[in-house]
């Protein structure tokens, strides 16, 4: 291509748009359904109930340690579908691009999205590109939607936590949020931080194979672990008691949080999940999580209890007790 940046014409449906699709996108996102270049994807579905989810992605910076907006847009929707207990199979990918975005950046984002889809074993089967004038969006916004199939006998929902269930967490918390935060703010911190952006559907498959009786699955993205637990407690009308010492936090994340006055319980994750599992099944599900490369640090962090319905209670490291509330508004760095 002659130009090095995306132009308004690339989104105008003419020659440039066609070339962008056929020369840049198709080779990267290679699959037969997409290659048909229909107005929509046409496909057969396996039997079963379906899960359908959509999410839009905007992140600064576009590229960060551990990922980019490209793989984030795939992982995020794959994970949302997987948290319904479904096996994600198809994705849509829609780009809204600010004119002037370097084509090299676009190519890199698409390659990341394609690699993420391949890793998650989902196909990007339909898409769209719009280019808008400078300032109308911040470089690139991405929307993805995902479709998945739920196996028979699997019933997952935020309202399905039962008293006695064990609460399992798949690994360290706060990695994504603190990576983005420290990148964005030019803090000049030399911390080994890396986003945990990853597709969780394979781990979910292993977990459901270990026990189809899992009641709740949730990926604690924005709002973090604390907010996700509060939502479950509220939706299920139960109390949740967790142990601070059991919640793994990397030292670099803990350090960055301390510096900025953040609570890791409220920092975003993009490759972690929590599950509420009947007690008799918890050991098998935990073992299944640990057998997945993304769940090596999985652990039991607490229990679903009858008292204080709707509330999450934390036993602190020193044996004290406090409540965990939902995050209210974005955490803002404090003064001293």
């Amino acid at each position: 291509m002659e130009t090095h940046t995306v132009l308004l014409d690339h989104g105008a449906g003419g020659k440039l748009a066609h070339r962008l699709t056929t020369e840049l996108m198709l080779p990267i996102l290679d699959n037969p359904i997409l290659a048909a270049l229909h107005d929509g994807a046409v496909f057969d579905l396996p039997p079963g109930r379906l899960a359908f989810s959509t999410d839009s992605y905007t992140v600064t910076p576009l590229f960060f340690p551990g990922g980019s907006i490209g793989d984030l847009a795939v992982h995020g929707t794959v994970n949302d579908v997987a948290m319904c207990g479904a096996r994600p199979i198809f994705l849509s990918l829609a780009l809204i691009i600010e004119e002037g975005l370097p084509l090299a950046d676009l190519e890199r984002i698409l390659r990341d999205a394609a690699a993420a889809a391949q890793r998650a074993e989902v196909a990007i089967v339909t898409g769209d590109t719009k280019v808008v004038p400078r300032g109308a969006v911040d470089r690139i916004f991405i929307n993805t939607a995902g479709l998945g199939v739920i196996a028979e006998g699997v019933h997952i929902g935020g309202h399905r936590a039962r008293v006695g269930d064990r609460v399992l967490l798949s690994g360290t918390i706060g990695d994504h949020g603190m990576t983005i935060m420290t990148q964005r703010r030019e803090l000049g911190l030399d911390l080994p931080l890396q986003s945990d952006s990853a597709p969780l559907n394979h781990m979910v498959r292993r977990m459901l194979a270990a026990s189809p009786r899992i009641g709740v699955l949730r990926d604690p993205t924005r709002g973090g672990l604390g907010t996700a637990l509060c939502e479950i407690a509220e939706q299920s009308g139960v109390g949740i008691r967790i142990h601070e010492a059991a919640v793994p936090v990397r030292p670099a994340v803990a350090g960055a949080c301390e510096l900025l006055g953040f609570d890791p319980l409220y920092v975003a994750n993009e490759g972690k999940l929590i599950a509420a599992v009947p007690p008799q099944d918890a050991p098998a599900v935990l073992a299944a999580m640990r057998s997945d490369p993304l769940g090596r640090d999985a652990c039991e962090i607490g229990t679903v209890v009858a008292d204080r319905p709707g509330r999450v209670t934390l036993t602190t490291r020193i044996g004290g007790e406090r409540i965990v509330d939902m995050l209210a508004g974005e955490q803002l760095p404090r003064i001293c």
């Binding site: 006055g261 934390l314 602190t316 490291r317 020193i318 044996g319 004290g320 007790e321 406090r322």
Partner: peptide, 12 residues
């Protein structure tokens, strides 16, 4: 203030 609350120190 935050450290006292976050550690649940009051309950001890």
């Amino acid at each position: 203030t935050v450290s006292i609350f976050r550690s649940g120190l009051r309950s001890l």
